[in-house]
Amino acid sequence: MHQSTIRLLREMAGICLVAVAIGLVWNHQLLYNAWTGNAPSTAPVAASAPPDQSGQAQQAVPVPLPLGLMQVKEFHDRKEAVIVDARDETAFAAGHITGAVSFPLGEADGRLADFAKRYPPTTLLVVYCNGYACHDSHDLANKLLAAGYPTVFVFEGGFPEWQAAGYPVMEGNQ
């Protein structure tokens, strides 16, 4: 009985070790990016370097996590997150997620200080733009992560997916 228990525990440990080893090797690049992005010593470098011009600075920025439509809707309805629209103001005025804040990627550097005054670093942010083919949300999320916001999600489906789902949208600059 005792012997069989020890054998069972040994086998469990073996299976877990094999699974962890394969998982680490298989996802080593992803884990490396996540780890280097999270390293506190790299944060000041990331915050001061223009993310679009330096590949090294990009690596130092934490990777924003993708968020699905349902989860964004939950955050939106419960007002648990600030929804950030990364598109330009014309696109925002033509239609945006109700309650979203306009923060165009092209004006991000100039507006970041003002944004930081309005929303403390503990704010949960969800950034979106024009769907899967649009990378502005990722770029803006990287800037926000580098600016010291630890929890930044990217809604990859963006405005097209939100609108297609029939969820609340509004026009104008408010």
Partner: peptide, 24 residues
Amino acid sequence: GNIAAYRILPYFGNYLVAATLPWL
């Protein structure tokens, strides 16, 4: 991202679990 929505683990922990748990 789904693990992060549980808001239990730290940032890197979400990736670590996402990398290894599916293999187990």
